[in-house]
Amino acid sequence: MFSDILLTIITMAFALMVVFSKKTVVSALALLMTMLSIAMIYFQLGTVFLAAIQVLVNAGAIAILFVFVMMLINLEQFENNREKGKVKLVISVLAILVIMGVFALIINNNIEVLTANNIPDNSMKLLFDKLFSVYYLPFEMATVLLLAAIVACIVITGHEKAHKVELEESHE
């Protein structure tokens, strides 16, 4: 019980650090620590597989890309160039609404919450049984969403590149 509370506090502290830290690299490292703390929570619940996947994918691959890029482009010169005023307010309100919506969904629908006591031994089999039957549609939708995000990235950066080339040509 005590360790649960401690882990929650650590996770929340790092998550807040991601948002409020002034230095971008520190934010990225705090994100990594958040991922690792979440893995620790999974581990505490007894799902070693999920914890390992969390470490492998989120901490080992995704967070490293963030840290890598932050260190590479050295964002320190843009430190004060953050979203300010109205934009920040709108984003905060939206974020709080989303979080409250998720909580409302969980409370209303009585979604079965896994605790350390009701996880069966073979957590890997259970996980994939659920993932490829009940949660198949959300799972596939998540992949489509990721694909859309990748295409969007390429479109946005590609457009900028084309624009830059045009500018350079006009200079010549």
Partner: peptide, 24 residues
């Protein structure tokens, strides 16, 4: 754990952080 190999591989994937942090 019955996930021994996964665990070992997952934590060894974190190996680059020490180097990255040192360099930065």
């Amino acid at each position: 754990s019955d996930m021994g190999i996964f665990y070992a591989f997952a934590v060894s994937a974190l190996g680059s952080y020490g180097i990255l942090l040192g360099g930065w």
